[in-house]
Design a protein around this nucleic acid. Structure first.
Lengths: 345, 345
DNA sequence: ATGAAAGCGCTAACAT
DNA sequence: ATGTTAGCGCTTTCAT
């Protein structure tokens, strides 16, 4: 009696019932086949699979998730008012990497962007509606409210990048501080004495950490950081060029510079050339890889490689572990960076 | 009697029933308030809203979409094996624009990427599962199978970019042909006689159309297109530089060049400079805007502006119309391009 | 191994 | 204007 009521539904979109009728079994058996339960006889499985093929049946996700309370979907949230961040190779790399890591699984990726408070609320609401099993959040700026908003929603959450404050939350980050330290040590090891730092904005944790690594390397070597040797860029090529000009003005005697991002390093190189300083004979430069921009530089730049692939793998792994309840709410992973010396032209 | 069964559910996630009980009304009334039906008394509305606030109630999407057969979600599908496409400013611009256009609505965006056949199947399946109300598909290459796969799924579909064959499908595209024609006319109007074309790959419809525009402008002016004046790039900066080198070799007497994309134009400019040709005195160049890369060029380039904002607006508008059943399956929109002359340095 | 039946949370007739 | 009721398509005990 139940089955004949199904006739009122949309034509062309088969349901479990229809498969069951065609296969001559019950709904439960079809469900078991679809969900790969071992409690099905081989014969039944064959019959059901044939019916599924014939009808081109695909389970209705809404119905399934209504009962299982899973959605098999995770969200990647980009919280950043600046819209050109989309073409930023670092963001692009993260999006791509997460998407690739998920391709191997049954999970699908939902990309959400928050450019203003309105969109932030929409995202928090979306998460609370239970439309995703978990979320990866990229939020760089210290004053961003979204991390708090999402923490309040009862959904597994992993941040991409260490949070600015010391909050208790799961995150994955590159070893920014270690990378900057190694880069600076490399320059000191070359015998340079006046190693400047072209760092990033200090409201970005990556900027803070990379600056801290430079300071530490100098301290370890017994140098005291000279304020004249520090200048802040905005992680862009143009910003890097401008910052390098200021740096040359502040400290004309510098003989090396650690640049806290690759695009800035490209700009810095240009500024150095314009100023008539030879690279690397005159000034040694090490960049910090956001996506290997500097690989195409002339002269080729020694850079700190940022482990994008590793980060995205960890991000997805940690989130899945959290969804499965196998990882704590504040578990963290730091992905090692490494120095890459490129052949000099 | 129904309500007390609810007790077995997840704690902390309130349902319609619980709101109804707290407000002292029926589920139906709560549903009406949530869905802004006019058939509710002001008093009831107030009581219900208070209960919603108190319980922090948010409707369960799965349950809703199970009955309404809507998901309030649309997918933006990027079908492109090349993974670096993510940082391509054109793609980034489309993603950003669509996302922005949707921010004003109740719809959410799901970004899906297909890099290989496996991912393509996953996407087709996802669409068939009824998890989205419609899809915007960016598929550039002529041999891509995804357009066919998605056409077979009964879901409103709009392509970003004219399909390569003459298939019957809704799409939105820039006026690539018209833009190329105007660019070439501009060069001819400057008095140039040997107007070369640095075009894109011919398996991309944008490449084909821009090339066709150049041919048409020459034909209209009574010139016959000289094969030596044509060379194909790959829409990238490096490709543009290499192509320009070939072009100079093939046709050393060229006095102008229409370049079918901005990044290529930047590369072409560099090649011209290296070859000792002065721009624009010696060789006039017009680029084709993929995301205003050329705006930062030196010398500033006259470019054909591609209406990204317009395209994304149309894309979303057309898809929504299709979802509402207000637009045919093969309705198309072409967004006008225009020539932008930049002040010479 | 299989089927019957209950119910996930919601909307939408249909009554009143 | 409000309540009652019948499902949407699926999973999952609980029997058999």
């Amino acid at each position: 009696m139940t089955t004949e009521l199904t006739s009122g539904a949309r034509p062309g979109v088969p349901t479990l019932d229809q498969v069951a009728v065609l296969a001559g079994v019950s709904r439960a058996t079809v469900s078991r086949v679809v969900n790969e339960s071992p409690r099905v006889s081989p014969e039944a499985r064959v019959v059901v699979q044939a019916a599924i093929e014939q009808l081109r049946y695909v389970p209705n996700r809404a119905a399934r998730s209504l009962v299982t309370r899973r959605t098999d979907t995770i969200a990647l949230v980009l919280s950043e008012p600046n819209s050109q961040v989309f073409s930023d190779p670092f963001f692009a790399g993260i999006v791509h990497g997460v998407s690739a890591a998920l391709a191997e699984t049954e999970l699908t990726l939902v990309l959400l962007t928050a450019r203003d408070a309105r969109e932030q609320r929409k995202i928090a609401r979306y998460a609370r509606q239970g439309h995703v099993d978990g979320v990866v959040l990229m939020s760089l700026h210290s004053e961003d409210l979204l991390p708090d908003m999402l923490s309040e929603v009862a959904v597994p959450l992993v941040l991409c990048g260490r949070p600015h404050d010391g909050r208790e939350v799961a995150y994955v980050d590159a070893d920014n501080r270690g990378g900057a330290r190694v880069a600076t040590e490399h320059l000191l090891g070359l015998g340079r004495r006046r190693v400047a730092a072209l760092t990033g904005p200090m409201d970005l944790i990556a900027g803070v950490d990379r600056h801290a690594g430079w300071v530490q390397a100098l301290a370890d070597a017994g140098h005291e950081p000279d304020p004249a040797l520090v200048v802040h860029g905005d992680f862009t090529e143009a910003g890097g060029e401008a910052a390098m000009v200021r740096l040359l003005d502040q400290a004309p005697d510098l003989d090396a510079v650690f640049v806290a991002s690759d695009p800035m390093a490209v700009g810095a190189l240009r500024a150095l050339r314009t100023a008539g300083r030879r690279v690397p004979d005159d000034v040694a430069v090490v960049g910090f890889d956001d996506a290997a921009v500097a690989a195409t530089c002339d002269p080729p730049l020694t850079t700190v490689a940022q482990p994008l692939d590793r980060m995205t793998t960890e991000l997805v792994g940690l989130l899945r572990a959290r969804i499965a309840g196998e990882a704590g709410p504040a578990e963290t992973r730091t992905c090692p960076t490494r120095l890459v010396r490129r052949a000099s032209a």
